[in-house]
């Protein structure tokens, strides 16, 4: 029982971590607070659902479509809708307000389209729905796959950002955007790529979620919120922090739901969130790194 709970907690936590990394990249590097982030996630979950139920495509294969599509669409959205805001903004604060308003609108557009196509019902499909024995407890194979995917994608992104010159350049933009041009970095282009990369992570997260959870056209807001909480818990812009805070949040939610009461999971999440805001406002894991 405990082993199953912990693994389920890690699965959920791994997913949160993945989602939070995308959001923290968009916010930390591109400086866009993307309120439509959760809708990107859900759109990808629907994509995996449709591909699976009409063509029998496995979600692992859907990732190969979802990731590039998330990247390309986010790239376009940044270019068409957000770049004009960036260009006319006078400072970080005004860009923050503008981008929140603009992506708030985008949230309803994407959600509306999904509602038209899929209605408001809960959606799920079955994939790898059998148990695997781990230390004497049975864990659903789809959850285990989701955990492995989240760790591989999250770990890969972490290595990309910390071990390559390109990734170091992205982190430099997040640390000191005004200094980036001094070393020949086109900060504008870096922001566009970072936003697109964050979008690709969101769509990967959406496919992963669809493997083991039910969702509806209007679940996006919850995921944006959870991702945002994880980002703040981990310290804005802190990738390793997002990873650890995501895993922690998933574990807490699952443990509370199993051993206390499913009705108290959200309360527990906000309790931790409030505590961190009050006592460690820069996040559990401190400054961006």
């Amino acid at each position: 029982m405990l082993v199953t709970t912990i693994i389920n907690g890690l699965v959920l936590g791994g997913t949160y971590a993945l989602l939070a990394m995308g959001l923290t990249i968009q916010y930390g590097i591109a400086r866009i607070m993307n309120l439509a982030y959760g809708e990107t996630i859900i759109a990808a979950a629907f994509l995996a659902f449709v591909l699976n139920s009409t063509l029998g495509v496995a979600p692992l294969v859907s990732l190969l479509v979802a990731a590039p599509a998330g990247f390309a669409l986010s790239y376009l959205i940044y270019g068409l809708m957000l770049h004009p805001l960036v260009k006319r903004s006078k400072g970080r604060a005004s860009l923050e307000v503008d981008s929140i308003l603009a992506t708030f609108g985008l949230l309803f557009v994407i959600q509306g389209v999904m509602l038209v196509f899929f209605g408001g019902n809960y959606i799920s499909y079955t994939y790898m729905n059998f148990g695997i024995d781990i230390l004497g407890s049975s864990v659903a194979a789809n959850r285990l796959t989701a955990l492995i995917l989240a760790l591989v994608l999250g770990g890969g992104l972490y290595l990309l950002l910390t071990r390559t010159l390109w990734g170091t350049a992205l982190r430099a933009v997040s640390v000191a955007p005004q200094s980036a041009p001094l070393v020949g970095i086109d900060a504008d282009r870096a922001a566009r790529f970072a936003f697109a990369l964050g979008g690709a992570l969101a769509t990967c997260g959406g496919v992963v979620i669809s493997m083991y959870q039910t969702f509806t056209a209007s679940s996006g807001v919850i995921f944006t919120m959870k991702a945002l909480i994880v980002v703040i818990l981990g310290g804005v812009g802190n990738l390793a922090g997002a990873l650890s805070a995501g895993l922690l949040l998933g574990l807490v939610e699952t443990l509370v739901a199993t051993y206390v009461s499913p009705g108290l999971t959200l309360a527990a999440v906000y309790f931790i969130f409030l505590g961190v805001l009050l006592w460690r406002p820069s996040g559990l894991f401190g400054r961006a790194r």
Partner: peptide, 16 residues
């Protein structure tokens, strides 16, 4: 300079 990055990361970026 990029305060949150290391010396060698700053130098690496110099050759970006």
């Amino acid at each position: 300079i990029f305060g949150d990055l290391t010396v060698s990361e700053n130098l690496d970026l110099g050759a970006y």
